[in-house]
Design a protein around this nucleic acid. Structure first.
Lengths: 191, 191
DNA sequence: GTCTATACAAAGATAGAC
DNA sequence: GTCTATCTTTGTATAGAC
């Protein structure tokens, strides 16, 4: 692990705080304290709270995009394995009762967010759905998955369920809930 | 429609604002302006923001509870009809691109919320799941629904999907999405 | 029950020294 | 690149007149 620069540490801390408490509830002071700097220093790296929010979501989305591009193009994994990789961030988050998906957290306060930030969230959900459609098509073509209906419709249902499951499991302190949800989703695909 | 008193108008406005923008992002001033009073007047009715939040969620939950108690005990509707009534608030909200479920909105910023408010949210989700379990059992006993697995598991999946669907449809401006989700859920029950 | 006035803390943001 | 100091606005909340 390379020693991170301040810009990235700010992104890390901000992401973690949003996943735990949302965007509106956190302040430059909260972030600065966790990073170990003073609040005006943050503005040297990101000129406004909106810009910082956009940078966090942009990085989040691109990290997932890079991960799936790599998995889908470089390797020849069975669709079942790729699907497990798709599920893994949800499973990891669910073991930590503090956090949900970054964009799931932001979606709740959507209409309070700056316009630029909303666009990033929209993009994340659109991308998340597309990745899932690709996996479903792979699995259907390889006869690994057995499901009825259009991949787009099934993908939407699955994404909705994963996001809702994370959110509700945190609010109901049901630690095993996301795991059960994922098992059910897999079983609906014949796995 | 009876003319409402100020206490209830405050609850109405606060609920609407939370469903649109969340809890942390709204202020007494936002509420007061919409109600048409000054902000200290709110505190005459609710001593703190936390108390107001609790009152809003408590009323929300009790409204649904009363509705389902009434439907389940007074009438002898087929389970299919009762399920449609259960779905109807989600469908109504989805036609308004501004709002999501009150507790769905709050779930995103869960760890920023005062303890008392968190308890109310937990209770709403627990109750929502129980109502759905009851409907599923009714439908299964009457051979109206055909689904595999425990009603508790199916109910959890359905609630997660509904909540996630509302949230994501708002963030992706997909107005017809919740409608499609509900059709898919019904089809999975053999309807 | 609603208002004006005010207290006090915290927010986002800027200026300028180092 | 980070700091101290400061500005301005807004937040929750209280006191007390009407």
């Amino acid at each position: 692990m390379v020693k991170q620069n301040t810009s990235e540490r700010i992104l890390d801390v901000t992401q973690e705080l949003i996943q735990s408490r949302g965007y509106s509830a956190i302040s430059f002071n909260d972030i600065a304290e966790k990073v170990g700097i003073k609040k005006p220093s943050i503005m040297h790296h990101y000129p406004s709270k909106a810009a910082l929010g956009v940078a966090v979501v942009d990085r989040y989305r691109k990290t997932f995009a890079a991960m799936f591009d790599n998995i889908l193009s470089e390797h020849k994994l069975p669709a079942k394995k790729i699907l497990d990789i798709y599920f893994s961030p949800y499973l990891n988050l669910s073991e930590n009762k503090e956090k949900v998906c970054l964009c799931g957290a932001l979606a709740g306060e959507y209409r309070a967010l700056p316009e630029e930030l909303r666009g990033e969230i929209t993009r994340f959900f659109d991308d998340s759905k597309k990745w899932l459609v690709t996996i479903l098509e792979l699995g259907k073509d390889a006869a690994e998955f057995g499901f009825d209906g259009e991949p787009e419709v099934v993908a939407s249902l699955m994404l909705d369920t994963l996001q809702g499951s994370l959110m509700i499991s945190r609010a109901t302190s049901n630690k095993n809930h996301v795991h059960e949800t994922i098992e059910s989703l897999k079983s609906e695909l014949g796995l």
